[in-house]
Design a protein around this nucleic acid. Structure first.
Length: 271
DNA sequence: ATGGTCGGCAACCGA
C-alpha cells in the first residue's frame, strides 16, 4: 500500500487548527506529525481531528512551549516518549504501526522537535546552544534510534538544523548562524549516520537543488527574498530507503493568513 | 551592521 506521512511545525495547534484542517482535507496524509503544538494534552483539539479522520493520536504536549503529536488514520500499537538532556520538555513521541494497521512488518514513526538553540553559536556562553548540541549527541547515542538493518522506521520532525550547503539560501552568509554552523551540521549528520538513517528528501531532490521548509517571520517579503532554510526532515531506515517515491514541500502554506513559519513536508512511501 | 515578527500568556521567554 501507499503510505503518506506529513511533518509540520505548526507553531500552536489551537491557533492554526483551521489551517491544519484545510491542509489535511487537501493532502489527506495517513499520518500527520506536528511539532510546537504549544498545547497541554487535556486542551488538545481531539474532536476536530477525529472529524477530519484522525482517530488515533499519540500526544506529548505541555503548556506554552514545545509539544509534539502523531495523528493517524491508521491504528497504531505502541507509543513511546523519550526525554532528552534530563529535561521534561516534550520534544519526542513515537508510535509503532503493526498488524492493526495492516503491516506484517511493523513501521515505527519517530516525531522530533529539536531545540532551536538561541542566537549565539557558542555553547560556553549560550546554554540554549549547549542544550541543542547535547540533544543531538543524545539522538546519536540513543539505542531506540538505531533500527536494525531489516527494521522499518521513519524519523521526522523539526530538527532545527539545515545540514547541507543548499539547505540554506546562502551557505557563506549562514555559516555562523545557528541552524547552519559546522558543529550542528556535523552532529546532526553523526546522529543520522549512527542510526543508519537515510535523508529521504535529498535522495529524491539531490543537491544543488535548493530545498527550504522554513522562512523567517521577520523577513518583510519572505517570498521575494526567499531566504529559507531546510529545518524539517524526513529520514527512513535502510529497510525503507528505496520505498519513498515523492516528497512534497507545501510552500504555499507559508503564504496563508496567519501562517506558521514552517510548511508541511509530505512523503509518499510504498510499504 | 542592525533590527526585523511571531505565539503563549499576561512578564518576558522561546523561536
Amino acid at each position: 500500500m501507499k503510505l503518506t506521512l506529513t511533518s509540520w511545525n505548526i507553531n500552536s495547534v489551537r491557533l492554526r487548527i483551521d489551517l491544519v484542517a484545510k491542509f489535511v482535507k487537501a493532502a489527506r496524509p495517513d499520518i500527520l506529525c506536528l511539532q510546537e503544538t504549544k498545547c497541554p494534552d487535556d486542551a488538545f483539539p481531539l474532536k476536530r481531528f477525529k472529524r477530519l479522520g484522525y482517530d488515533h493520536v499519540a500526544l506529548n504536549g505541555q503548556k506554552g512551549y514545545h509539544g509534539v503529536v502523531v495523528l493517524s488514520r491508521l491504528p497504531f500499537e505502541q507509543v513511546d516518549v523519550q526525554s532528552f538532556c534530563g529535561k521534561t520538555d516534550c520534544r519526542h513521541v513515537s508510535a509503532v504501526f503493526g498488524e492493526r494497521a495492516g503491516f506484517r512488518d511493523p513501521i515505527t514513526v519517530h516525531n522530533f522537535y529539536v531545540p532551536a538553540g538561541g542566537d549565539i553559536p557558542d555553547p560556553t556562553v549560550n546554554p540554549k546552544f549547549a542544550h541543542k548540541l547535547a540533544f543531538l549527541d543524545e539522538m546519536r547515542t540513543s539505542e531506540k534510534l538505531k533500527p536494525a538493518p531489516s527494521e522499518r522506521a521513519i524519523l521526522v520532525g523539526d530538527l532545527n538544523v539545515a545540514p547541507l550547503e543548499h539547505d540554506v539560501w546562502s551557505h557563506k552568509q549562514m555559516i555562523r548562524v545557528v541552524s547552519h554552523t559546522p558543529i550542528e551540521c556535523e552532529k546532526l549528520n553523526a546522529a543520522r549516520k549512527a542510526g543508519g538513517w537515510i535523508d529521504t528528501m535529498r535522495v529524491l531532490a539531490p543537491e544543488p537543488e535548493k530545498l527550504y521548509t522554513w522562512w523567517s517571520y521577520r523577513a518583510a517579503d519572505w517570498r521575494i527574498a526567499d531566504r529559507g532554510r531546510r529545518l524539517d526532515h524526513i529520514w527512513t531506515s535502510d529497510a525503507l530507503a528505496d520505498r519513498a517515491s515523492t516528497i512534497k514541500i507545501a510552500k504555499d502554506y507559508r503564504g496563508a493568513v496567519r501562517p506558521s513559519d514552517h510548511v508541511p513536508v509530505t512523503a509518499t512511501l510504498e510499504v
